[in-house]
Amino acid sequence: MRLMIAEDSALLRAGLERLLADEGHHVTAAVADADALLAAVTADPPDVTVVDVRMPPTHTDEGLRAALHIRRTHPQVGVLVLSQHVEQRYAADLLAADTRGVGYLLKDRVARVEEFLTALQRIHDGDTVLDPEVVRRLLARTRHTDDLRHLTPREHVVLTLMAQGHTNTAIAHHLFVSKSAVEKHTNAVFDKLRLPRDDSTNRRVLAVLRFLGT
């Protein structure tokens, strides 16, 4: 893959660049701020960008805003956002539009090299990747929403796995059930969340957005 890194910590930035190069990937740019990232993406769009949420000058949401801009202007570029802590609003903002090729991971997940590399590959393939801890916090935030309270425990699990970007086949494998059983649960989730049945909407995306509280 052709990758770009935006991370203001020089040590982490260099570590990521070395790790990815050792795995055979080509890091086309490794920058310390959002403006440099946007300029690099405009000049030579990569396959996937790895972006820290908080970068100079204010260290608040520069990285996230850059990631959202990339999603709008270069939808073919995958985006993996890294955050030190679970910041629910940022995750919800990132997933409020097209969720294909998007990921949100906590930085300590980078230390689990195989998980990190797998996440990059999934994003490159067009999947959605959410850190399990992010999903857990978002579920806790939305647990008391009226529609979500109607879901059974198994339907909650299925919706959680959907929010992590898993396909029905992957969910079936994870839960040791048939794909048809998963389809039954997902349809029940869609109905209980009162999602429209028409060709102009994606009920799966709408269910995840409802789950995230957006």
Rank of each mutant, 00 (worst) to 15 (best):
G101N: 10
H59S: 05
V48F: 08
A67H: 05
H74G: 13
L68A: 02
D52S: 15
T128F: 06
Q88P: 00
A92L: 03
M55Q: 03
D47L: 07
P57Y: 07
T128I: 01
R109F: 04
Q121N: 09
L80H: 03
A97R: 12
D127G: 05
L95M: 14
D127I: 04
D131Y: 10
A111P: 00
L105E: 11
E114M: 00
R71E: 02
A92G: 05
D93S: 07
A119R: 14
K107G: 04
Q76R: 15
L105N: 08
T58A: 15
L106C: 12
A92F: 07
T58W: 04
D127C: 11
Q76W: 03
V110R: 04
R100W: 10
H69S: 12
H69V: 03
A67M: 07
R65E: 13
E115G: 00
R72P: 03
V51S: 10
V77Q: 01
V81Q: 06
A67F: 12
G103M: 09
P57A: 07
V53D: 04
L80A: 08
V86H: 06
I70D: 09
F116A: 00
H69M: 02
V129W: 10
I70H: 08
T118Y: 01
R71P: 12
L64I: 10
D98M: 01
Y104C: 09
L68S: 10
D93E: 12
L120N: 08
R112F: 03
V129E: 13
I123S: 04
L94W: 11
Q76A: 14
K107P: 01
R112G: 00
Q84V: 13
Y104W: 09
V81A: 04
T58C: 11
E114W: 00
D61N: 11
A67S: 15
L95N: 09
V77I: 02
H69E: 12
H69R: 15
T128D: 03
L82N: 13
E62V: 02
T118M: 02
V48M: 05
P57H: 10
A97H: 13
H69W: 08
R65P: 00
L68F: 13
L68G: 13
A67P: 01
L95V: 00
A97F: 05
D52H: 08
D93A: 13
L120T: 04
L106I: 02
V86P: 00
A111Q: 08
R71M: 11
R100N: 07
L82R: 01
E115C: 10
D125N: 09
L130S: 05
Q121W: 02
T60L: 12
T73G: 00
T58G: 01
I123W: 05
E87M: 06
T118I: 06
L117N: 10
R72I: 03
V50W: 08
G103A: 11
L105T: 03
L105H: 04
V48K: 03
R72W: 04
R109N: 01
R100T: 07
K107I: 03
Q76I: 02
L95C: 14
A66V: 02
G101R: 06
T58P: 00
